[in-house]
Design a protein around this nucleic acid. Structure first.
Lengths: 203, 203
DNA sequence: ACCTGAACACCGTTCAAGT
DNA sequence: ACCTGAACACCGTTCAAGT
């Protein structure tokens, strides 16, 4: 969104922003949430702690950027999914992929509420995040509708339906990541919950 | 669980532990998660920061205690619910109550994973938490089975079913608390998702 | 003009010192 | 024997000082 391609003798600002986000992602993957400190991000990105605050208003702002990216990747994934296999098959693929993303960024979403409640709702990064959520949601609805149609089914017509599916994906991903259901295989769990979710929104 | 009723000239240890937890709860309700600091808890509970660490091994330990209590309250609530109204009505009540609890302790559960992964799994408080989860889960299964039976229905027989319902409750509660679905009323959302959840586990 | 990193105000946790 | 709170090692964030 930011069209300020400010290159200088110090380097490209856009590149540094990118490097900062990449550093955050790799720290998250390697050491989990607790390894994600501003100092560590700065060191890995090759900048200073102070400079990070020129590209991001605060730590939450970095989270928002990571969440936006994750959301858009998910939208791409959903768009690329085949619809001929029907609703359950579609949901099965989606649950697996959503859980993968959740393992990385799930912890970050917890802090949404903190900013959302405050005056910070009109931040650039928040508008961007909401936009990416909207992109994902519409991709989701389209995929669900088309997959249901492919097997001669229809989704229940209700404005709450999207939110129920999103809630389901979130809850199921959390369960998968936490690995609380130790007595059953992940494959079985994903398959069963995909069919359950499909049942819940059709007919 | 702790049978050490160690009273002394300094007062009852059990009472102080209780007061510490109550202080944590009130801070959580008044100022949210960010207000929940050890110093604030100590001050409100009328003890010192150092003393808190005699009753709880660390901050997470306080969370675990609060979560256990919340879980047992939920179990009581589920047990008290009428079954004659059928599955959807039961789930509707449960979703509302679960969301209420989630508003308070949802944020605390995020840190489960951190301890769960570490060696701390054999802590007293963790065993207690798992026990309270088991109590809630069996109350849940009983209520679901009986409510389904009351309307002449049967639950799908699968070990994954409980986890799907729990995932659903968690995801739906989160959605309700975050209040992301602004265009629909909470009542409608709870009603619709209860029926969706009922459909997903019957027949 | 841009960048750095010491400094500030916190945090969870510990432990010498008090009673 | 029990309790306190200063001290320690962090954290996110800022801003005087450097280039």
């Amino acid at each position: 969104m930011s069209s300020t391609s400010s290159k200088s003798i110090y380097g490209d600002a856009e590149v540094r922003r990118r490097r900062t986000l990449d550093a955050a992602i790799s720290l998250l993957d390697e050491g989990g949430y607790s390894a994600l400190t501003i100092r560590a991000v700065a060191k890995r990105a090759g900048t200073s702690t102070g400079l990070i605050y020129q590209y991001f208003v605060d730590k939450q702002d970095i989270f928002a950027a990571l969440l936006s990216e994750s959301q858009l990747e998910m939208a791409d994934f959903v768009n690329s999914l085949p619809r001929e296999q029907g609703l359950s098959a579609l949901l099965e693929s989606m649950i697996s992929e959503f859980a993968r993303h959740w393992a990385r960024v799930g912890r970050l979403t917890t802090t949404w509420r903190d900013i959302e409640g405050m005056a910070g709702s009109d931040r650039e990064s928040m508008r961007e995040l909401h936009a990416s959520v909207a992109v994902f949601n519409s991709a989701l609805v389209r995929a669900l509708t088309e997959s249901a149609a492919a097997e001669g089914n229809r989704l229940i017509d209700d404005p709450a339906l999207v939110h129920v599916v999103l809630s389901g994906l979130k809850g199921l991903s959390d369960t998968i990541v936490i690995n609380v259901a130790k007595e059953i295989t992940p494959e079985h769990f994903v398959n069963f919950s995909a069919r359950a979710l499909a049942r819940s929104i059709t007919q």
